[in-house]
Nucleic acid binder design. Structure first.
Lengths: 333, 333
DNA sequence: GTGAAAGCGCTAACAG
DNA sequence: CTGTTAGCGCTTTCAC
């Protein structure tokens, strides 16, 4: 019951050629006569030969595997990106080693090193924050890295994002245009996150443009969970907020449900706009108006960009900004 | 700018020992004097040596990597399992190569072969159906396989599941107890799926026990998507169904929303019970009553079982059946 | 307790 | 167009 052990050598002997020739056939090298190629292919098929990717990786120093660091596969925002990543990876014949990081720097550094020891050809990182420690480890690794849906304030690492600031500003504009002036901004931690920071800037810019005084009290830093969304409603109501711009869909759904449970009607008495347009936005009633970043595409483009870097192709730009849409639904007027 | 090239040989030379000794230290082999071990460790740290897992894999024929075949990471049911899998894998120092299969047999076989060529030490398969073709490929591979949340009618492959039949029967019982007798059963395809088949058996058993005649027309085979859930409502209403047992949460949410949009109140005029207790069940209003399989645990236990098989440990049983709960919420009376 | 040496299965020059 | 020959970096006997 041992594992398959048909090697390139067996194929070579059986086909009466050298292993180099077999290797050429397997790697679709052009320099093989059509007849020998056919012969080799026939033997490969008959012996059910499957090239050993590990041996290949050792000899060629390319593993056709990329590491993907994800905070949590269970989060729809990230899993949507992951799906885009995997599809493009498959298209380019790469496999993906997925590793959950729980957004903990400690964990992330460990995961990164583990991925590097596996000799991945490249890495895609998803998260919200990149700490200096992680950043250094990435640079030192000399392995291509692309940040998917993640900002790097140093702008040294390749990344794919939307323009969070403008998007959030537009979202806030919509709320303002509907007559609100005591608008809550619901965000995750603002510590070290270029990400949430940009959104906050957008929120502030919109207020400023409309001549509304920015009030720190209207910025709520909470964990990005459904429960936290439910709970924050109490505070918003107490603070007489009549609308909210939310950075996370799960939080927004929690808010919608808490509001409904309290008998507050949306959008009549309270308007909400969220940021990721994940499936969830359409599963609630009312459906959520949302900034609509192209989630799948952010993943897909990240992976495509990574292939280019890995193959040392010319890349037009290091930081790609994808367009987003605004999806107007029933949580705003 | 080449990748790191500190090898075991460099460490050996620098520490004044042989590579065999370094290898022993790295692999925590006991037969090394404490002092030399310390010396080697110091050099490893100083040189920032990181063992090359690929070379290791080639030499030892163990890659400490397992393949995970998943229909779609974006599906909360499967991503919850995946999370459990990854956590336990990490605990046992395995990495995970994740591959989306879209439930297409063609794709699955391709993915399986690809995984095998990468020399994974084991495979975890998620899906609903195992076709003969896939089944054969798995057996032939001589690589340990565990099915997570997936039934294999031949009972040859190790698997972790709940008792779908009894669970569905219980769910149907609840509906029946509430006075319904024209109950719809909403399922994915029944073709080749031990999975849905068991559920159907449970549904039928409950009806029979209650003396309700089974009516084929009440079984709706639809795609397991939100949209399909929305659409099926029209038919249910036309058929005067007053309750439904649903195998998929997304479908159930679609149904709830369609019913609400039609002004049908839940649970007063229509009761629904769903099967996976994913996050979604609590994000809707009303919240969904659901069979509650321990999603994370199914993944975790699958991975644990796989480690045992890979390490050739004694396993008590090949097919593990985990307990489930019933989560009574507002979509039933 | 430690070292020498033989591979693991493949790719990649380099010849021819 | 094809074969020869070195390794890739590590584990694993087998001696000592």
């Amino acid at each position: 019951m041992e594992k398959q052990t048909v090697t390139i050598y067996d194929v070579a002997r059986e086909a009466g050629v050298s292993m180099a020739t077999v290797s050429r056939v397997v790697n679709e090298n052009q320099n093989v006569k059509e007849t020998t190629k056919k012969k080799v292919l026939e033997v490969i098929d008959r012996l059910d030969y499957r090239p050993n990717a590990v041996a290949r990786g050792l000899a060629s120093k390319r593993t056709t595997t990329v590491g993907v660091i994800i905070p949590d596969v269970t989060n729809l925002y990230f899993s949507s990106l992951a799906r885009g990543i995997d599809d493009i990876a498959t298209m380019y014949k790469y496999n993906i080693i997925l590793a959950n990081s729980d957004q903990s720097t400690n964990q992330e550094v460990k995961v990164l090193n583990n991925l590097l020891s596996k000799q991945v050809d490249g890495i895609i990182y998803m998260g919200t924050t990149i700490t200096d420690e992680l950043y250094d480890a990435m640079l030192r690794s000399n392995t291509p890295v692309v940040l998917a849906g993640t900002m790097d304030s140093s702008h040294e690492i390749a990344s794919v994002n939307i323009d969070y600031k403008t998007a959030t500003q537009e979202a806030t504009d919509i709320i303002i245009a509907n007559g609100h002036n005591n608008i809550a901004f619901i965000t995750g931690t603002l510590k070290n996150t270029a990400f949430n920071d940009l959104r906050l800037q957008g929120y502030r810019a919109a207020l400023e443009k409309a001549g509304i005084t920015y009030n720190e009290k209207n910025v709520y830093e909470i964990p990005l969970t459904y429960k936290a969304g439910e709970h924050v409603i109490e505070k918003l109501l107490a603070a007489d907020n009549t609308a909210a711009v939310v950075v996370d869909d799960e939080v927004a759904v929690g808010m919608v449900n808490a509001l409904k449970d309290q008998g507050v009607s949306i959008p009549e008495d309270f308007e909400i706009i969220t940021s990721n347009n994940s499936k969830l936005t359409q599963l609630t009633r009312p459906c959520l108006t949302s900034i609509a970043p192209p989630l799948y595409d952010i993943g897909a483009v990240s992976m495509r960009l990574l292939t280019k870097i890995m193959l040392k192709e010319e890349i037009a730009q290091n930081e790609i900004t994808l367009p987003y849409r605004m999806e107007q639904r029933q949580s705003t007027k």
